[in-house]
Structures are given as structure tokens and as C-alpha cells.
Amino acid sequence: MTLKLTNVAKTFPDGTRALMPVDLDIKQGEIVSLLGPSGCGKTTLLRIIAGLETTDAGGKIRFDDEDVTSLSVVQRKVGMVFQSYALFPNMSVRRNIGYGLKMQKLPKSEIDARVDEVIALCRLEPYADRPINALSGGQRQRVALARAFAPRPRILLLDEPLSALDAALRGQLRDELAVLLRTFGITAIFVTHDQTEAMAIADRVAVMSHGQVAQIGTPEALYRAPASPFVARFVGDAMPLKGRMGSGALHLDGGTLPLEGGAEGGSAYVRAEDVRLDEDGPLRGRIEAVTFLGTHYRVVLSGVTPEPVVALHVGASAPKLGQTVGLSIAPGAILSFAHETESA
């Protein structure tokens, strides 16, 4: 199914504007992530697509060629995975998964066959007849996914599907989820505040901030060519290089960097992995803290910009604390923006 949003916005009864008018096109089978900090409107947008919230007047939601704007969630035939999973505690795994099919009034044999199929697909066979409260977090997540998928929804909507899990499990299930969603071959939108999650699962990521879509693109495009300082910071944790930008050069407390392009009054960002400890580098900084992270050292440096700068250092031994060292940044690694503002 393709999804087309035009001019979808949300103003709550108390006057807060949770969502500025948004346009969005999603292709058949595409997996799109809505990524942003809490309060950016991503969940509201998802809930409007599901039919759990209504769009402000003027908004249009189309599933393929059908205008579903005025349809309620009951009629919209979407599959939804909730942040808390919303599994029915009074039903077994099997009955949870079959509930949507039962609502479609399918014959029992057909429901059973379909439930078995989805249970196998999600590798839930050993748990099929267990009550929900006997399941682990990861199993619940799979049941929630299976339940949403079983009635063959037109689109799958996932609201922070991994956030209820502990960190160790989250990484493993993230990869599982990416595989499952592609096995399903279904159009899917999932909301997350975790950039790694978004990049691992989605074909395209829509970065949201303050009720607006700041940028939408493939993970690579967002990472390599962020459209705004906000996207640069949110995707890949870029650090601001606060200083004076002139044509062809960036003047910092710790030295001057050559710059491709760049303009008076603009801003520059860099990621820690692009900052190198390099005795011949154009910048100088003092080592304030060193953390050993196995594959590399995380080095915090002062004196480069007003705020500390972080460099990732690969080497056999730890850089010495308190030492003043040289730094270099490849000109291509600097993300420069014409305007100074932080937000989108």
C-alpha cells in the first residue's frame, strides 16, 4: 500500500500545536522511521495515520487511492504495535494473535490456519498457549508484532516497539525486527527516538523536530548530508565547532581549519570519529579525560572550542591526561551550514 499525507496537522484542544502541517509520501513495501526527540510530534503523526487521533481540518490521509481521513481506527485496517504492546492480559498468545481475525468474522478454521502461520513466522510456537504475563519482554514484542500483522493490515504502524526492552535485548531484537518486517513485505512506519534503531531498520528516515519534518531521506543521506544543524546533531551526534566562519576557513580557539565553501556567519559541526589526534594537525587541545572503550579510546579535549571536543583514538596505549596534543579534521568531514540556528 502507498501512503500519502497532505497538510496533516494537529492542534490539541488546549491550543498546543503538536504537529505542524506535514506532507509525506510512502511507497509500497517501504519501511519508514519517524525519528526525533520526545515531544517532537512523531507519535502524534503515527496516531493520526492509525486513526487514533484526527487531523486538523484540511489534512488528508490516503491509503492507495482511498481517502481514509474520516475513517475511524476500527475501519482503517491498520496494524499497530504499541509502545507498551497493549497485549490483552485476559487472553493467551494465540487468542491475542487471532483477535483481529475474529473481528473480521472469519470462519474458525481460517483463523486457526492464519494464526498458526503467523506464529510460525514469528517463531512463537513454544509459547502459543501461554498467558501474556508468562512471557518475557522480547516474546511480548514478537506477539505484539504477530497480532498486528495477522489480520493482513494495509500498513503496519509501530510506536517505539523496542523501548520497553532492556538495552542488551534491544540490539538483538532490532536486527530481528528488521528481518521480520522485510519478510512480511508490508509498508511500515515506525516511531523511535533512537537513531541507531531508525538507521538499522528503515529504508528512509524522517527526522522530526518541534512538530515538523526536518529532513527525510535514506540513513546514508541523513548522515552524510544533514540538512540542518539539528539533523547533524541528532543523527550521528555531531559536535558544534563554535568559532568564526569565514570564506574558506574556520577560526577556532585551538587554531584555524581550512574549509571547503563556508560563509560569514555560518556554523560548522563535526563527528567524533572524524577528529584525529595528529601531532602535525592545525588544532591544539588539552586532554581532559580518556575512556577506554575496547576498540578505541574516547578522548575529551578542551581548548579547541568553548565546549569540550571529543575525538575517537585508535591506538595501543592511552593518550596522557593533561597533555596538549595536535588535532586534525579532514576538510570533507566538516558539516557546514549557512545559518546558526539549532533547530530545523
Binding site: A50, G51, L52, S72, V73, V74, Q75, K77, V78, G79, M80, F82, S84, A86, L87, F88, P89, N90, Y99, G100, M103, Q104, R147, A148, P151
Partner: peptide
């Protein structure tokens, strides 16, 4: 005490009309 609102949203997204959400979800839980 149970998160009735979310449970009902779950049921609604699966196509359950209001009275079924009452008999299938709210009352049993």
C-alpha cells in the same frame, strides 16, 4: 489501574467496535 485506554486502542486497531472492547477487554480484565 490497568492501562484500559491503550488496551482498547489495541483492540480498536484490530477492528473491534466499542461494545466488543467492553465485553472482550474491559470486563475480563
Amino acid at each position: 489501574a490497568i492501562d484500559l485506554k491503550t488496551l482498547e486502542e489495541g483492540a480498536a486497531s484490530l477492528g473491534a467496535p466499542a461494545w466488543r472492547r467492553f465485553t472482550d477487554i474491559a470486563v475480563p480484565n
